[in-house]
Design a protein around this nucleic acid. Structure first.
Lengths: 171, 171
DNA sequence: ACAATCATGTAAGCAGTTACATGATTTT
DNA sequence: AAAATCATGTAACTGCTTACATGATTGT
């Protein structure tokens, strides 16, 4: 996946992490991880090996600043955005090139290869995928209801598009 | 981005490459690259450094077999799927876990951080992103009309969802 | 002849992945 | 006191990125 448009811009992961820090500031790396793990998208694992080095990188670039604490003998870093970080976040949030890009959807990708399914197999696959998607929405995150609403709008639109494409392929 | 569900399954890139080889068999690595470059998604660059090693990997795993040729002094590999490759492709095409996953969309991601935009800034950003998206559709690939239709269905649904979410945020 | 494009690759770098290690806190 | 979870990290690996190098073909 193409991650940077240029060496000075934030990657998608960096921007999302920065926005998360801002939302919860002062914010520990662990909280950033939790936010990624709670996200419905499984594009990023939110693994420790991704997040802790990432936060150090953002710190090294002075986009975030840490107030250090200790819990027992363990260090702990409470991050907030610097003014430079605020500017970088704003640029990321208003990056039209990224906003215009179509992104990535595994089911859509497979529909583009619809010719390789046997008769009815594609319809069956789509039905099963959408069923599973519905089961997963079924367990609503008790978090932000706004987020939940956005998620539902997105998935409903996705389902509609997938069904339309399926029809087109069957015609 | 999470790429493999398990070590024995094909990554998204591998599956798409395999499907592309099957579509154009016997197929050179260059043709696979072209297919990725022509794709509306910019998630993968289709760079030589990605594709040539990838094809070698698929060959080493006996998912594709190469008929070697030479053009002048240069070697050339014409790939086709092996029976094992056909089975792996079928498994990839019918992977319900992947089909159910929400994927990735940069604009959607940003909408989840809608609170960080100033009044009207978000609406402006969305408008500009959609405009750019339309300009890019404006130059239609003279290729597969089916593909073009699917692409348009997808983008129309995406636009509708984005506008709905924007409305929700403004309410 | 020269430039552009078609075509095949390699090298260095980097940001993810999984898996592991360890300390602190809470629950049972 | 033991187990589960919260929390912070590191190590080895992998597969992508950009940039470069080079050969063959086509167009002017």
């Amino acid at each position: 996946m193409k991650i940077r448009s240029s060496s000075t811009e934030l990657s998608e992961l960096e921007g999302a992490a920065l926005a998360t820090v801002r939302k919860h500031a002062p914010c520990t790396p662990y909280k950033v991880r939790e936010a990624f793990r709670a996200s419905p998208s499984d594009v990023w694992s939110g693994s420790a090996g991704a997040i802790y080095p990432l936060m150090r990188r953002l710190e090294a670039e002075k986009l975030v600043a840490a107030r250090g604490e200790r819990v027992g003998r363990r260090p702990r870093r409470l991050y907030s955005l610097t003014p430079k970080g605020e500017r970088a976040l704003k640029a990321w949030l208003t990056d039209v090139d990224r906003g215009a890009s179509i992104g990535f959807d595994p089911l859509r990708t497979r529909l583009f290869f619809g010719e390789f399914y046997e008769p009815d197999e594609l319809a069956d696959y789509v039905a099963k995928s959408l069923e599973k998607m519905h089961r997963e929405i079924g367990s609503p995150d008790p978090g932000d209801p706004h987020k939940d609403g956005m998620h539902k709008i997105w998935l409903a639109a996705r389902e509609k598009a997938v069904r339309k494409i399926l029809k087109l392929l069957q015609a």
